[in-house]
């Protein structure tokens, strides 16, 4: 890896806890993501990987703990009252503005079927960032070119394959010029022959210096692109380290057990 990971924290998480009813999904997580860093999260299904990712852009509201983004505590000062404060702008945090800085790509793409490929990309920048239409279109075309979808610009998503939809979803997120992009199993819903194209796009992005957090079952990919790998189990980060450490010589027996099952 040639790129330099700067030692500047972009996201810091402290004592993060989340429950669904009686189910404790995240248990006091402390973590951070540095600017330009590529972090992979691996672990068994149901261990809380998606929930952790979704807390970072407040798609889930954590009951306890703090998340600092660019030095701002986006949960409000007091985690116990976070929910109430987040839904009122009076709390000082504009949740929409915050989310604009964090791109997210979902397992099931979630492209907008009622909009063309181009409209999928330009809608949010034009509406929410008041970007001039022509400028948004120009950048959208540039991005589409980069992922090999320019010829589809006026199609509706139903005409696209799964892999094309996911590349569109990535481009849609990038059009907001986020500071970090979160991937939640971006290739898990794809036919095997389409996985490679999508992974190539993600790899290019990661290598270009984009701060990236990716939940994935593609262990080879995680090993190759990550600066750091987190192994998550039962709502906790059970182990973390460089890809060499995690995949080469895991310290936690649970990590070893998990890897022996999936590799």
């Amino acid at each position: 890896m040639t790129k330099q990971v700067q030692d500047q924290v972009l996201i810091r998480v402290e004592g993060l806890s989340k429950s669904f009813g009686k189910l404790h999904v995240l248990k006091q997580i402390d973590q951070h993501v540095n600017l330009g860093e590529v972090v992979s999260i691996i672990g068994p299904s149901g261990s809380g990987k998606s929930t952790f990712l979704r807390c970072l852009n407040l798609l889930e509201i954590p009951e306890e703990g703090h998340i600092w983004f660019d030095g701002v505590d986006i949960t409000g000062r007091d985690g116990a009252n976070a929910r109430r404060r987040l839904f009122s702008k009076a709390g000082g945090i504009d949740i929409d503005k915050h989310r604009q800085k964090i791109g997210m790509v979902f397992q099931h793409f979630n492209v907008f079927p009622n909009l063309t490929v181009l409209e999928n990309i330009t809608l949010a920048p034009v509406l929410e960032k008041k970007e001039p239409k022509a400028q948004a279109v120009a950048r959208a075309e540039e991005l589409l070119e980069r992922v090999g979808l320019l010829d589809k610009r006026d199609e509706y998503p139903r005409k696209l394959s799964g892999g094309q939809k996911q590349r569109l979803a990535i481009v849609r997120a990038l059009a907001m010029e986020p500071e970090v992009i979160l991937f939640d199993e971006p290739t898990s819903a794809l036919d095997p022959e389409m996985v490679k194209d999508v992974l190539t796009v993600i790899r290019d992005l990661a290598e270009s210096g984009m701060t990236t957090v990716i939940v994935t079952h593609e262990m080879g990919f995680a090993r190759e692109v990550s600066d750091r790998v987190l192994f998550m189990e039962d709502g906790r980060i059970a182990e973390e380290g460089t890809p060499e450490e995690i995949f080469g010589s895991p310290k936690n027996p649970r990590t070893a057990e998990f890897l022996s099952k999936v590799l």
């Binding site: 929409d96 915050h98 964090i102 791109g103 997210m104 979902f106 809608l123 509406l127 929410e128």
Partner: peptide, 27 residues
Amino acid sequence: VDKGQTEAAKSLGMSDRNMMQHIILPQ
């Protein structure tokens, strides 16, 4: 309408109003 549509719109930082008007209601 698929819950993923709401989540995608929100993750882009769209306001509730714009999300309703441009994504959810048309579908």
